[in-house]
Simulated assay, not measured.
Amino acid sequence: MDKKNALRAGALAAGTTLMMLLMSSPALAITRDDGDDPGPGLSVIETLGLFVALPIVLFAVIAGLVMVFDRSKEEHRVTSRNIKTKADAKA
């Protein structure tokens, strides 16, 4: 019975995807709509800055803030000072 439900779900997902692809015609994207007022395009440098450099900078800033304002206890942090090795355990 499990196989039958999986087959039914797969057929439904495939059918839905096919219908969505058939309903959205990319050729209609060429024609302009009334009131459509696109701005000037972005250069390659602007595009790379906006979609590549800016997310990397934001990630670095957030990671830095988290590291600076970390208030966890010292014994819970993994550092070279609190790692126990087998030689340390015997001594």
Rank of each mutant, 00 (worst) to 15 (best):
L42K: 10
N5R: 05
P38F: 09
S43V: 01
S24N: 15
I62L: 02
I83M: 09
M1L: 15
E74Y: 02
P38M: 08
P26N: 05
K3E: 14
A91L: 08
E74S: 05
S72H: 06
F59M: 00
G10C: 00
N5G: 07
M23Q: 09
L50N: 08
A14Q: 04
T31R: 07
D37T: 14
A11H: 01
A6K: 12
S25L: 04
I45K: 13
N5D: 08
M20K: 15
T17D: 14
S43T: 13
L22S: 11
A53S: 09
A53I: 04
L42S: 13
A91T: 10
L28A: 05
V52T: 08
D88H: 04
D88Y: 01
G49I: 00
A91F: 06
E46W: 05
G41R: 07
T16Q: 10
L12Y: 09
D33H: 09
H76K: 12
L28M: 08
L28H: 12
L22K: 13
L28F: 09
N82F: 01
D2I: 15
L65N: 01
V61N: 01
F69R: 01
L65F: 03
V61M: 06
L22R: 13
D88T: 14
K73G: 00
M19I: 12
V52I: 07
M19F: 13
A11K: 03
P26T: 03
I45W: 14
I45D: 15
L54D: 09
E46F: 05
A9G: 00
T17V: 09
M19N: 06
L12W: 07
T79W: 07
S25T: 10
M67P: 06
K3I: 15
